[in-house]
């Protein structure tokens, strides 16, 4: 039971941190609207927005999988 509570708390903190990261990124994007082009993207096509989406998906999948592992097996 204790392990379940601890893992749940960890995932809640992880989500909260992801929200704080989104706020910081939004603040940066508002203050620095630089003229982006294919020459400034990573490998010519990867934007910061794509990495952000990948980050949110990774956090969600990571939390879902470990919560399922914890509550199903333990």
């Amino acid at each position: 039971m204790l392990i379940k509570i601890l893992v749940l708390t960890t995932m809640i903190i992880s989500f909260s941190f992801a929200v704080v990261v989104q706020m910081r990124l939004l603040n940066y994007a508002k203050k620095h609207p630089l003229p982006e082009s294919k020459y400034t993207y990573l490998l010519g096509f990867i934007k910061l927005g794509y990495i952000n989406v990948l980050y949110l998906l990774s956090v969600a999948i990571h939390a879902t999988l470990f919560l399922w592992l914890t509550f199903y097996y333990l």
Binding site: L6, T10, F66
Partner: peptide, 21 residues
């Protein structure tokens, strides 16, 4: 130990993406 691994993997996930950002 399992809980420790979960915490480490969570921290590592966030750290990897912070490097990207």
């Amino acid at each position: 130990l399992y809980f420790g691994i979960v915490v480490l993997l969570t921290i590592y996930l966030h750290k990897t993406f912070l490097r990207f950002f």
